[in-house]
Computed example of a mutant assay.
Amino acid sequence: MITLHALQYSRATRILWLLADLGQPCNRIDYDRTEAFRAPDELSKVHPLGKSPVVEDDGELIAESATILRYLSTKFDDDTHTPPRGTAAFWRHEVLFDYVEASFAEVALRAIMPAFRSNPVPDDAKVALDSHLAYIAQEIGDGPLLFGDTAMLADIQISYIIALLARLNLLNGHPVIAAYWEALQEQPGYIAATRSAGPMAPPT
């Protein structure tokens, strides 16, 4: 059985979502955040960088949520969370899937971190975030999700950052993204994951 090292209010919820969709159980080891909202020292005993999520499977230790999602999808022969291979939609999906942490996360965090501390979001950070949210809205198109009615890996991957933005009222002025967030929260895997492990976003 997969062992998942899951930090509270973290990207680990992405992994629980996919496992729920696939009907696969896991041995979940939970870690509470410190008073400074950091990962506890115990996670450094699992991964040298103290990262979460991390999964253990058949002696393998795998970090990075994008890699874990791809690993689980391959391990369980899942073809329901990506468009058909070789199609234009498949490669659009791969772009969006990697875009989340390669490009969007850094921009979003520039707004999230001051908002989380109840400080004003710098103007340049707000402009950059608005630009990315407009790009995502364009990719959603008619929606409700990135590829229609079915949640793909890219939807699961982006959900964590969208959850943080929504929690901090940083989706104001972006109705398409707000509607997208509502649709994400209606997905069975999301519901199962958050019922099991708690909300994606922390209280403010």
Rank of each mutant, 00 (worst) to 15 (best):
L7V: 09
V54D: 01
V55I: 15
D30I: 13
L168Q: 13
L145M: 08
A108D: 08
L171H: 13
L165W: 07
D130F: 09
D142T: 12
H47T: 04
T74W: 03
E186D: 13
L43S: 07
R85I: 13
A108R: 06
E64T: 04
R14M: 00
S65Q: 04
Y190I: 06
E106D: 11
D57R: 01
A108Y: 12
P188V: 05
L61Q: 14
Y160S: 02
P120A: 09
Q185M: 15
Y135P: 00
W17A: 00
G86F: 04
A6M: 11
Y71G: 04
D57K: 04
R117C: 01
P53G: 01
L19G: 03
D79S: 10
N27G: 02
E94A: 07
L43G: 02
Q138L: 07
V55S: 06
W181D: 12
E60I: 05
P188S: 03
I29F: 12
T74A: 01
L109A: 00
T67P: 03
L19A: 01
V176R: 15
D98E: 15
H47I: 07
H5A: 04
H132Q: 15
L153A: 14
A154L: 15
D149F: 04
F97L: 08
F116C: 00
F97I: 00
S10Y: 06
L16M: 14
D155R: 01
Y135K: 02
S52F: 10
D21Q: 15
E139C: 06
P48F: 10
S52M: 04
P48G: 08
A134N: 08
K75M: 13
D155M: 00
N172F: 15
Q8T: 12
Y71V: 03
L170H: 05
T13S: 12
I177D: 08
P175T: 12
G198K: 02
L18G: 00
V95F: 10
A66L: 07
Q157A: 12
N119V: 05
E42W: 00
A102C: 14
A20G: 02
V121H: 14
M1F: 11
E139T: 06
L22G: 04
S159V: 06
S196M: 03
F116K: 11
H174T: 11
T80W: 05
P25V: 01
P144S: 10
V55L: 14
A6P: 01
V176S: 14
I140G: 08
S10M: 09
A63R: 01
A134Q: 05
V176P: 11
A125T: 04
L109V: 09
P83L: 06
Y190S: 00
I68W: 06
A102T: 11
D98S: 14
K45R: 14
A125N: 06
P188K: 10
I140S: 02
Y71L: 02
E56R: 01
L4R: 04
I156A: 11
V127I: 15
T194R: 05
R110N: 10
A20E: 03
P203D: 15
I161F: 06
P83H: 12
S159F: 09
I162R: 06
A154C: 15
L170P: 03
I191L: 11
I136F: 13
L165V: 07
A88R: 09
A125C: 06
A115G: 10
F97G: 01
